[in-house]
Write a protein that binds this DNA or RNA. Structure first.
Lengths: 210, 210
DNA sequence: TGAAATATAGCTGTTTACAGCTATATAAGA
DNA sequence: TCTTATATAGCTGTAAACAGCTATATTTCA
């Protein structure tokens, strides 16, 4: 019996990238490249009928973006390994891909060897990142939210707000006057530069305050 | 010149775990164990005066928890490597540690070799997970939020709400009656089982709808 | 010790959110 | 095609949020 090579697909809106990756990966003869797509809408029906072992997935795509597509892929075919392959270096985007079930993230600047190594690691079920991504994740730049520091009481109240507690309810819970709670609310809104609770919770989430 | 061994600290509220780890790690003579702590409050002042290369950090701790402590550690000493060492297997907790700058996550069930391997990888600047954690992260269980599916319009309005737009403002932006926007709001609240916007944005964030 | 930050409490408006209904036109799916 | 889902619009209350102020006790820290 022939050892079957893992099936690989590429989703990237730059035809040049697809071209380059195709030549590169085929030269190694380690993978069975069964499809290239420039958008997610074309890839989804393909995935529904063809078993794909691993997908190299760009983040920026026309229509449905790579992050949502990743989630979709893992829903349709949980065994399919998704390896993000993108120029984007924002921490939040990397985390989002992981949250959506990606097995790793390779920066397009990475060397060929680095990419091949990451594909290999991912195929072996391990989560893997190219060097630059690794550094971004571990060298956490956690300075700016020190500027908007909340007090203990404010943090406490913020968490209660996030859980849906109203001002009168919080006042009861903490044995405070509703005026006190209202003042804390105002201070929290001001500190985080939010116009209302909705924006407040968004910002608090982004800053990891919850 | 003697090759200095990396300094290692342990923060875990179970003395037995500390005891076990200490014996185990010392036997290998690869690390210089310079401190063990049963809570974060004791560890922080220590870190401020002693250089620590790597910390094995539990999630559940009395007082400040491991996730917040991780952020604090990376703020005080960005070069210090944090390796989470916990019994907790929830996806959200693992992600939170990564968001706060951890270099990896090892389940307490992991074998000794697995732990040593992860410590080694982390010391080499790589992000690393024990086998079980790896599987949890890649085998994304993304079913349940398919039950609470929002329509295009609802998603659009939800995002605007998250950005702090009020009902009258959204109505203007989308050329709709304020009543229409209000109805969409009600439907969104109901679908996501939220009592008010605060809880709504929290839930939406948890489900990755934003 | 003295200044600054924090936590507390109060008042008065206006605006927005939310609950509870009804109702219709259109689009999508079985 | 016909039912269901979606998007639209309306009304009436009440509750909550928010803006803009003042004021004081307590804590924290330099």
């Amino acid at each position: 019996m022939l050892p079957s090579k893992p099936t690989l697909a590429i989703v990237d809106d730059h035809p040049i990238i697809i071209e380059g990756l195709t030549k590169l990966l085929m030269k190694k003869e380690k993978f069975d490249l069964i499809g290239s797509f420039t958008n997610g809408e074309d890839f989804i029906p393909f995935l529904q009928t063809n078993p794909v072992k691993i997908v190299l997935l760009d983040i920026v795509l026309p229509g449905i973006d790579g992050m949502d597509l990743c989630k979709e892929i893992k829903n349709i075919s949980p065994a399919t390994i998704v390896l993000a392959f993108s120029n984007h270096q924002e921490r939040s985007g990397i985390m989002k891909m992981l949250e959506n079930g990606a097995s790793g993230y390779v920066l397009k600047d990475a060397s060929i060897d680095e990419l091949l190594l990451c594909i290999d690691e991912a195929l072996n079920g391990r989560i893997t990142f190219s060097k630059a991504i690794n550094d971004i994740l571990t060298q956490a730049q956690l300075k700016e939210n020190r500027l908007t520091r909340l007090t203990k009481r404010e943090t406490e109240i913020l968490k209660l707000i996030a859980h849906g507690a109203t001002t009168p309810h919080i006042a009861e819970l903490l044995f405070l006057s509703k005026f006190t709670v209202e003042n804390h609310r105002k201070n929290i809104l001001q500190k985080l530069k939010a116009k209302n609770v909705a924006e407040l919770i968004s910002i608090a989430n982004q800053q990891g305050l919850l």
